[in-house]
Amino acid sequence: MPPKKHTSTSKEENKAASNKEVKDQPEDAVEDKEDVGSKRKPDEKTEEPPQKKEKTSAVGEDIVKDKSESVDESKKAHSLEKGHIYFFYRPKVDADEVGSIDDVQKAYMILKPYWSSDAKRSPTLIVLGKKKLPQVEQHARYWGFVGKTSSNIDDVVGALKESTYSTKTKGERTIQAARPMGEGVYTITSHNGHSHLAYILTLPEEPTKVQDAFNIEKQASIVLNVKNPKKSSPPGSGLSGNEKAEFPDKLQKAFSDRRFVAMETTDFLNYDYCELVMIGATEDLDKELGKTAKDLEKMEEKDEDHVDYVGVDKVVFKDLHLEADQNPVAPLKEWK
């Protein structure tokens, strides 16, 4: 009888059949089978299939990118207004000479806009509470208000000129003219839910002891909040009596029932007695405001050319229609 043939498949044939079966399956099925069925040695590393890894990586990058763009957009500073800024102080009536801030009666900040996101903005004189700007390093909070706003710059700077008044006991007395102590450029921006007044000084080139006394930096950013005139003021601050801003309904509604709001529109500054809370923010404009800070730097460069053309001793008076003999320019560098 011939020998009986073996019907069992050899190991080589089994392996070949197995490989054929695997090749005929979809690629995903192969990956699943290898992940679930294979046993690996403890020190054996397994890499994720390239196609799957690339897909996961691409999706992840899209998510991160979209999130990053969203955050940057929400924090982006948007310019509301641009213009020239001026700082003045007025000596006390009895002060023959001014040697420190103790001899100063009032300090002013004048904004002369040349561009605004609102339809119309007028030059504005702001009276500084505590006779100075808030300290940036300490994030101090100081109060101020719009003393005068008008489309006619002569009306605005009228408060800076010399004047006289009479008293029963001392007769006629003279209120000395205000002295300029700084000139530069500014922008008001809406930024991350609040508003900033950012400025860069052109004159003087670097702050002196005069500017230091009023916390006027070479450049700085100050947070601006507007007070609701229908709400009471904290003790020791704010205007009283009839000295309250009368905003139109569209501006008054912005407060709702709040005492303060961010300045989302500079139209607030078009109204006398608009009360402000100013908070020192930072000297690092690039970090705080990004591209808006770069725009402000370009404005300052143009202002330097303007100052050089008109003259250091003349530019403030020419811009504001003031008389140099009444408003001495010396405080730009020293007390006067």
Rank of each mutant, 00 (worst) to 15 (best):
S163P: 11
E31L: 15
F87C: 02
D286Y: 04
K170M: 13
D96L: 11
R141Q: 06
H6T: 10
N19D: 08
K302D: 10
S74A: 15
F87M: 11
P42Q: 07
G60W: 09
E246H: 15
D96C: 02
K168N: 14
C274V: 04
A254Y: 09
V210M: 05
P3N: 04
K131W: 04
R258D: 12
K76S: 14
L289K: 03
K302F: 06
V307A: 07
S38R: 14
K53G: 14
K11T: 05
K20V: 06
I85M: 12
V30L: 14
R258E: 10
T7D: 08
M109H: 03
S232E: 15
M1P: 12
E97T: 08
V261G: 01
Y186S: 04
R179P: 07
I200T: 10
V64R: 10
A330H: 10
K170N: 11
A281Y: 15
D118H: 04
K253Y: 06
H321V: 03
S256K: 14
G83T: 01
R90V: 01
D154Y: 08
S233Q: 08
D32T: 09
K11C: 07
R179Y: 11
R40E: 03
S232P: 05
K227P: 13
G60V: 04
K33L: 12
T124H: 02
S240Y: 00
I222E: 11
N215G: 00
A16I: 09
S70R: 09
T266P: 14
G241K: 02
E304S: 06
V226C: 12
G238A: 05
Y309G: 02
K106L: 01
P229K: 01
Q135N: 15
H194P: 00
D286N: 11
S70N: 13
I216W: 06
L269Y: 06
R259P: 00
W115R: 11
H78N: 13
A119W: 06
S190L: 03
Y86R: 08
L111K: 13
H321R: 10
L203P: 00
V315A: 04
V146S: 12
E47R: 03
T282H: 01
G147P: 00
D249S: 09
S74K: 15
S8I: 06
V226A: 12
L203D: 04
T149I: 12
S70I: 07
V30Q: 14
L269C: 02
G147I: 08
K65G: 08
I200F: 03
K33V: 15
I188A: 07
V36M: 12
F255A: 12
K53P: 00
D257T: 14
E69T: 11
L160D: 06
D66V: 15
K298H: 05
A77F: 02
A293Q: 08
E21R: 11
L285I: 11
P234N: 07
G99A: 03
P331K: 08
